[in-house]
């Protein structure tokens, strides 16, 4: 059986999408699979939308970027950002989305109300499988607001949307993250998986 999985990770600058894509790439490399990823870098610190493209396959991969309708898995660090990327998700794909929104930094200008419920509604009705994760609650439980990235990765793995076991991702965390943060991240992974 051939393995091909395209993953799109969508969030807001500062939410840690790049680490999530690095961990998946590490797990893929350790499993002897081909992997290409591509990041938005530059405006990341300043509250803009950021997207990581991750492509994993058991055969060679040409392009590092996803095409519309080609993502199997969409991980939304923010529900509105997941909606923005729906164009990339294939019908029947899987969405793992954080429940909490990040208000746009330009709220002072737009003056329009931004409703996370409306965004989650669109995710629910788009023709894909949806897993909603209460990111705030889980981060509070493990005691770090910055663990959202790994929490969502755990949830995606548990939903069968990554092709990697928690053990494989744990190994990727050990190989990637600085030693003093390894435990915290592994707890985050399991908290996400249980959710």
């Amino acid at each position: 059986m051939s393995l091909k999985r395209n993953i799109m990770i969508a969030g807001v600058g500062g939410q840690g999408t790049v680490l999530a894509s690095k961990l998946v790439a590490r797990a893929a490399m350790d499993a002897g699979l081909a992997v290409r990823t591509s990041e938005t870098i530059g405006m990341a610190q300043r509250g803009g939308s950021v997207v990581s493209h991750v492509r994993v396959s058991d055969s060679a991969i040409a392009s590092p970027v996803l095409t519309p309708g080609s993502a199997d898995t969409l991980i939304g660090f923010e529900p509105g950002e997941a909606v923005r990327c729906l164009r990339y998700l294939r019908p029947g794909g899987c969405i793992v989305s954080n429940a909490q929104t990040v208000a746009p930094a330009s709220a002072a200008l737009t003056r329009t109300e931004y409703s996370g419920e409306a965004m989650l509604g669109r995710l629910r009705d788009c023709g894909a499988r949806l897993v909603v994760v209460d990111g705030d609650a889980l981060c509070a439980e493990i005691g770090s607001l910055k663990a959202l990235n790994v929490v969502l990765l755990g949830a995606a793995a548990a939903a069968g949307a990554l092709d990697f076991t928690l053990e494989q991702l744990e190994a990727a965390i050990r190989a990637t993250v600085r030693p003093k943060f390894v435990d915290l991240n592994i707890r985050a992974l399991h908290a996400g998986a249980r959710a």
Partner: peptide, 24 residues
Amino acid sequence: APAAHCAAAPEGAAEPPVRPPVLC
């Protein structure tokens, strides 16, 4: 054939907010 995707939404559906880069 244009690729099938999940972005279709009913008329008037809420859109995600714009996020232009801003000073931190």
